[in-house]
């Protein structure tokens, strides 16, 4: 369960998140959509104790991550938008390190690592250093790692960025499976509307730091009279590019991100 009220985050005089309020029920798959720079990642960072909000309140399974960061961290797992692997270690070592950090017992850890690396077709390369991986392989490893432990809340920040269709399909099948069997709450962002349409129970659309619409995919389409989620999204957020308004630093970040892929 996630409950957020009037959440604000300012960087200097720029306000990236302007007082958003939403709730995600236990066992729900919630998609957070929005153009580049809308504030999705910033929101996730605040929810996952990586960033201190300027104001507002957060609750994760009834816990306040601002005052009880460590307890709150027991409840969630996350796949970051930006790379977060240790490139100087092998795929297996990256998985193992994660398993240790998340208290997965040794035997179970070995079993799950094997299963997940096979699922995401990385088992052949398990003893290769991550620095020798292609962009998509790194991404698959990050996702496999995110599934190594089974948290009650799973944050997926653009998990399918740079993935081939096979891996994407694998990912969403797995997410749905986890959601159905373990009642995992999933909070995801993506720029692929078809993915959100396919897996999400509920969708929020964010733009310029505020939530401009919330509801099921059908409700959003109906509100805008569109026949696809993509059309609904564009009608809520307009069709102009978001980079002109963003500051230089954001542009740099965007470029850096592109080159890293």
């Amino acid at each position: 369960m996630i409950r957020v009220q009037n959440l604000v985050k300012s960087f200097g005089d720029f306000t990236a998140v302007k007082g958003i309020t939403f709730e995600v029920a236990q066992g729900e798959i919630f998609a957070f959509l929005g153009p580049n720079g809308a504030g999705k990642t910033t929101t996730i960072k605040m929810l996952t104790t990586l960033l201190q909000p300027t104001s507002g309140t957060i609750e994760l399974n009834g816990l306040n991550p601002l005052t009880h960061a460590q307890q709150a961290r027991q409840h969630f797992g996350i796949v970051f938008q930006d790379p977060s692997l240790d490139s100087e270690q092998t795929a297996y070592e990256n998985m193992d390190l994660h398993g240790v950090l998340y208290h997965v017992p040794r035997k179970l850890r070995a079993e799950r690592i094997e299963r997940l690396l096979k699922l995401f077709e990385l088992w052949d390369r398990k003893d290769n250093y991550v620095k020798t991986f292609s962009g998509g392989m790194k991404r698959r490893l990050e996702i496999a790692r995110g599934f190594l432990h089974t948290p009650s809340i799973l944050f997926l920040d653009e998990p399918t960025l740079g993935l081939d269709p096979q891996s994407r399909n694998q990912l969403w099948t797995h997410v749905k499976h986890l959601n159905e069997t373990e009642k995992t709450t999933v909070f995801l962002t993506t720029h692929y509307m078809d993915e959100a349409d396919r897996v999400a129970h509920r969708i929020a659309i964010m733009d310029h730091g505020t939530i401009v619409a919330q509801g099921t995919s059908a409700e959003l389409k109906q509100q805008t009279g569109s026949d696809s989620l993509e059309a609904a999204f564009l009608s809520f957020t307009g069709s102009s590019l978001r980079d002109e308004g963003a500051d230089a630093k954001a542009q740099l970040r965007q470029t850096a991100r592109m080159w890293r892929r």
Binding site: L50, F80, S84, L85, D86, L101, Y102
Partner: peptide, 18 residues
Amino acid sequence: WDRQFGFLKETLVAPVPR
């Protein structure tokens, strides 16, 4: 470097005391 290459945040969100 761990900050730049992102590995630091993987350890920072882990459910162990910092």
